[in-house]
Write a protein that binds this DNA or RNA. Structure first.
Lengths: 118, 118
DNA sequence: CGGCGTCTTCACATCATCTTCACGGCGCAG
DNA sequence: CTGCGCCGTGAAGATGATGTGAAGACGCCG
């Protein structure tokens, strides 16, 4: 029996236990705040898709995004920072200018992949 | 199957014999009060997972956590103190602000442990 | 009775989190 | 070039959550 629709989500080396409030990166527990965790869950549940700020805000903050509110961006930054800290070199949260954010273990463009400039 | 759900639990250098009311740290017995032991057992049975205060209180005190009751925190502190006393330098009980506590022998995530060399 | 350990509750210290602001870079329309 | 919208990023202040020491009540036992 499924107690919840999304009890456990996996995205690459990430494992998110929505109910428990726990997120594992490469098997290790992440230390996330309530907002950070909420944001991660919201993105994870829509992994691979672009989620608009409006939708993100609704999901995490539980209300309409007010004009000029940057909370979303700030928390995406914090979350990115912690993820980068735990799993260096693999960007999870991708920005789609004008549209929103997308959680995905893969790079944005499959094209010139390893073109690590230099 | 397990005749008793958690007769003996091991967490790192900790060994907890729930039935016996005995807890060993690195081989030597800990001197714990009833509440402290109950708390340790509750956490140990959910090792690796975050346990909320509400759940902890239910498990150890056997009733709903009353608003404003800090007993849980106080006992986590006492237990931490004794564990630190027995096994210095390895944090077992991790705090997840806004969620609860988690028992785990490993650190949440290894920062760039500044030359803690030694 | 007196000592001892335990449990609970307080008051205060500390720390983490949340929100908002301000500045700066970037890309694009005009 | 210049203005403007969008986003990244660091920091400040207020607020809330947790850590911590201590006091009082209670029961147990010699």
């Amino acid at each position: 029996m499924e107690p919840s629709p999304a009890e456990l989500v996996r995205i690459g080396d990430l494992e998110i236990r929505a109910r428990e409030g726990l997120a594992l990166a490469g098997g290790r527990a992440l230390t996330l705040s309530v907002r950070e965790f909420g944001l991660l869950v919201a993105l994870a549940r829509n992994a691979g898709r672009i989620v608009s700020r409006e939708e993100l805000y609704e999901l995490v903050w539980g209300g309409p995004l007010r004009n000029g509110d940057r909370s979303c961006d700030v928390y995406v930054h914090k979350l990115r920072s912690k993820l980068e800290d735990a799993l260096p070199g693999m960007p999870f949260i991708h920005t789609h200018v004008g549209f929103g954010y997308r959680l995905d273990p893969a790079p944005s463009h499959p094209f010139h992949t390893a073109a690590t400039a230099r």
